[in-house]
């Protein structure tokens, strides 16, 4: 098992190398670079820049070097010095910008994952055990509703509701008076009051999917002979269901970690923009639009790392949960 984990971690290195290479080259694919898009936006607003100044900036940033050289400069900085490069647009080192954003992204993602689990597990079990009952139909109805409503519409609705009926400031993670304030209980409560909207919005679609998966899996498992064996032992119905079939039907829950992380980071950009969340999505989008290549590249690289880690965690958990899965 440990040998397997170490092996997987070593295998991540070439994968990450591939991710970094591909992401860097994709970022470079659009014609031009940061300076050309800067020039374009400046000339739009009637300003001009001295061509000599531009040539000087090009030389400093190394924008005229071949792509391979640029890539090598960037990646060696990361590997050797932990230096992710310099954001042209923000005029600050990428690492200054990125960690805050990644942290909030990760915490919102994890909170959403916990929400998804907490909601879909009991509903899924209920739906499977009481299949075709009224409760099952109601849960299924709301599940599909959650799946069908676009996230940003749900976000707008919830923002409206919380502003209109709870009188809260909406958007972002904190009310204006707490931004940049020290951590107090008031600030934590404020964070919580803001956090539930993105968590519910981001979680609903995943919840519906997991309910359906759990219901289908558990329905299959419930008719297996070992469930009858458990009943024939004299276990109560609750224990029979929870100890045996649910345990086996849980596998998709654990695999969810693997796909939920990348999905939450890249898939919820629109929601994050609507809710003005300080997550990675909106920043990445702007970096890509303005060809701020080091910022964008670093984001994509870090997301790659997160995805790989998520996959590894889910694989290891799966092996712990189900002894039939063995790693050698």
């Amino acid at each position: 098992m440990w040998v397997y984990v170490v092996k997987r971690i070593f295998l991540m290195i070439p994968t990450l190398f591939g991710i970094s290479l591909i992401s860097f080259f994709i970022i470079q694919l659009p014609p031009g670079d940061y300076l050309t898009s800067l020039l374009a936006s400046m000339s739009d607003s009637g300003q001009t820049i001295d061509p000599a100044e531009i040539a000087r900036m090009r030389a400093t940033y190394g924008l005229d070097d071949p792509m391979v050289v640029q890539y090598f400069k960037w990646i060696s900085g990361i590997v050797l010095r932990g230096d992710f490069g310099y954001s042209f647009e923000w005029g600050r080192p990428v690492s200054d910008l990125i960690w805050d954003r990644m942290g909030s992204t990760l915490s919102i993602s994890l909170a959403a994952l916990v929400f998804v689990w907490a909601v879909s597990l009991p509903i899924g079990i209920y739906s499977a055990v009481h299949r075709h009952s009224v409760g099952d139909h109601v849960a299924t109805f709301f599940g599909f509703l959650g799946l069908a409503i676009p996230n940003f519409i749900l976000a707008l609705t919830l923002m409206y509701v919380s502003y209109k009926y709870f009188g809260q400031s909406v958007g972002g993670l904190f009310s204006p008076e707490y931004i940049g304030a020290d951590w107090t209980w008031g600030r934590v409560w404020d964070l919580f009051m803001h956090l539930w909207i993105p968590i519910v919005v981001i979680g609903t679609s995943g919840t519906a999917a997991l309910i359906r998966i759990l219901r289908a899996n558990l329905t299959d498992e419930l008719s297996k002979p070992y469930v009858v064996t458990a009943r024939a032992k004299g276990l109560s119905e609750f224990n029979v269901v929870m100890r045996y079939p649910v345990r086996i039907a849980l596998n998709p829950f654990v695999s969810a970690i693997g796909w939920v992380l990348p999905n939450l980071i890249s898939g919820v950009t629109i929601t994050a923009i609507v809710l003005n969340l300080p997550t990675a999505g909106p920043l990445l989008l702007r970096a890509l639009v303005s060809q701020d290549m080091y910022l964008a590249g670093s984001f994509i690289l870090l997301m790659g790392v997160l995805t790989l880690i998520g996959m590894l965690i889910s694989d290891v958990l799966l092996a712990l949960l189900d002894p039939r899965i063995r790693f050698t």
Partner: peptide, 24 residues
């Protein structure tokens, strides 16, 4: 009836492959 199941009456099935839990 749960006290009878397993306690007074034991049951063996046809499918030894699938009548035991695979994860315990």
């Amino acid at each position: 009836i749960r006290a009878v199941r397993g306690g007074r009456i034991g049951l063996i099935f046809q499918e030894p492959m699938s009548s035991l839990s695979p994860v315990h």
